[in-house]
Amino acid sequence: LEGMTFQLKYLGVTMVEQPKGEELSAAAVKRIVATAKASGKKLQKVSLTVSPRGIILYDSASNQLIENISIYRISYCTADKMHDKVFAYIVQSQHNETLECHAFLCSKRKMAQAVTLTVAQAFKVAFEFWQAAK
């Protein structure tokens, strides 16, 4: 409930057409990984806190807030099959209706799975709260 924090590396973002889907997210992750590799830049270290309220991202080096994403804007999360150390989620942009897929590199495959399962747990708890509040 109070949140779980993970140390990850931010790979990047790409637009997607739909809020969910295995093939859609796999294609998005593929694009993000290719772009990150092509840029050759060092990846930004981030701390990602998951709770039933949503996801909060901080820059690990500066402790600056990057984004606070409400659970209601997140549509989907996944541990990628092809890139098994990659965790990704799809979120509706705060500024317009566009959907973005954000991807993060984990140190281990198990960690990508743990982040994904933690976000899934947050979805479940948020849904229980929402139902109770109705």
């Binding site: 997140i74 989907y76 099959k81 994904t116 976000v119 948020a126």
Partner: peptide, 18 residues
């Protein structure tokens, strides 16, 4: 292992109205 772990959010786009 060919399984993808993925989850849909059941509260996506639900309003936060009380």
């Amino acid at each position: 292992n060919t399984n993808t772990i993925h989850f849909d959010n059941p509260v996506y786009q639900k309003t936060t109205e009380d």
